[in-house]
Design a protein around this nucleic acid. Structure first.
Length: 139
DNA sequence: GCCAACGTTGGC
DNA sequence: GCCAACGTTGGC
């Protein structure tokens, strides 16, 4: 199973809104970046991801699961843009801030730390375990 | 609100 | 195919 990280500005789409969608989940639409899209195309149903609040909070707040594989983005007429659906699994007991990640040994290579502008990114197995630990949840 | 980093666009 | 101009993201 692969791990990912999804960024959203809480003013646009927050963790609370994602949780409110329940098991049905929500289309992760609006991504217009090739790298982010390619990451979504690589996802499989059942893959897990972190839900990160950018700008406001700047912290990982929850865990999501991919519930539909990549398909054309319903909010775009451009066939280049695909996206997956994700559903909320659980909230972190303690949100893990960007600042925490920057100083945490073992997270030096994390994309969140090194490529601030990529909105859908891969997370390594080791990083997943570390961040779950920081957030007070089981991996 | 500013600005650095980065991606995309379009003229040549 | 290069590169300047421009737009967007996101941390500060």
């Amino acid at each position: 199973m692969a791990y990912w990280l999804f960024k959203s500005e809480p003013d646009t789409w927050s963790w609370d809104q994602q949780v409110a969608k329940g098991d049905e989940g929500e289309e992760w639409h609006g991504v217009r970046n090739y790298q982010a899209r390619n990451n979504m195309r690589a996802m499989k149903v059942g893959d897990r991801g972190f839900f990160y609040h950018s700008n406001v909070g700047k912290e990982v707040v929850g865990v999501v699961e991919v519930c539909r594989e990549s398909a054309p983005d319903s909010t775009s007429d451009d066939p280049r843009w695909d996206c997956v659906w994700i559903r909320a699994i659980k909230s972190l007991k303690t949100p893990v801030t960007l600042e925490d990640c920057k100083v945490r040994p073992g997270l030096e290579q994390m994309v969140l730390v090194n490529n601030t502008r990529l909105s859908v990114q891969p997370v390594s197995d080791a990083e997943w375990v570390i961040v779950c630990g920081m957030g007070g949840i089981d991996p």
